[in-house]
């Protein structure tokens, strides 16, 4: 992490593309693959995670001088779990259809690496306003990536987009495999390849799944030795 001071605008927009949590930092892969079978689910998941991220970033940033360093991970997890529970109840009350579609993955936002990762690498060290903007930016980046993956998989896999028929199957049959699990891995792999290609053109490093982004890196002896690889 570069230590030079970023402006608020830069903090906010970093998550969109430059540090997109999914395509560049490769965090939160489980929900990305699982809920991106439809564009609409992707948006629902993105909004839910963004709300949790903004809330937890704000609270963690407020409490950053109160939480002792040694117990910060359990403390962060408790705060995040609290917000996930709130979102879970709100979704159940106002958008039960999305809750049904996201199923277990809505509750699993609590172990989403993006949220704990941002708490550890940003909100725990920064003031409240930048932390909120960081959470919002990262959440939007997450939503953009989910929308992209959801759209590709929905159009190719079931011939619809947001439920509207795009490909009726008269010329090309929708390829069911794209909404099944192999399609998820495949589309995600190619999107990362594309992001790497663009990053390479701008002289940046390709995305890697290193220990650096993992929120548990500090308490993991393998990471201290230079990674699990």
């Amino acid at each position: 992490m570069a230590k030079k001071q970023k402006s608020l605008g830069e903090v906010f927009t970093a998550g969109f593309i430059k540090e997109n949590p999914i395509l560049r930092l490769v965090l939160g892969t489980c929900p990305t693959l699982a809920v991106s079978t439809m564009a609409f689910n992707g948006i629902g998941m993105g909004i839910a995670a963004t709300a949790v991220l903004v809330g937890s970033n704000a609270v963690i940033s407020l409490l950053r001088n109160v939480i002792p360093d040694k117990v910060r991970i359990p403390a962060y997890i408790t705060i995040i779990a609290g917000f996930v529970t709130i979102i879970q109840m709100l979704v159940k009350a106002y958008a039960p259809a999305i809750g049904e579609a996201l199923g277990i993955y809505l509750r699993l936002i609590v172990v989403n690496c993006i949220i704990l990762g941002r708490a550890e690498s940003f909100a725990g060290k920064n003031r409240v306003l930048p932390s909120i903007l960081d959470g919002l930016g990262m959440g939007i980046g997450f939503t953009i990536a989910l929308l992209l993956m959801g759209s590709i998989r929905e159009i190719l896999g079931s011939g619809t987009w947001f439920g509207l028929t795009v490909n009726s199957g008269s010329t090309i049959e929708p390829m069911l495999i794209f909404i099944l699990s192999p399609g998820g891995f495949f589309v995600f792999g190619l999107l990362i390849a594309l992001a790497n290609k663009i990053a390479e053109g701008k002289g940046k490093e390709p995305a890697t799944l290193g220990c650096g982004g993992c929120p548990m890196a500090k308490s993991c002896s393998k990471a201290a030795e230079g990674g699990c690889e």
Partner: peptide, 22 residues
Amino acid sequence: PKSLQGLPITLVSASLVAISFL
């Protein structure tokens, strides 16, 4: 190919392993 090296090719291979599990 260069842009597929590392993570992308890993994901594509994971996709093939997942097909076998289907």
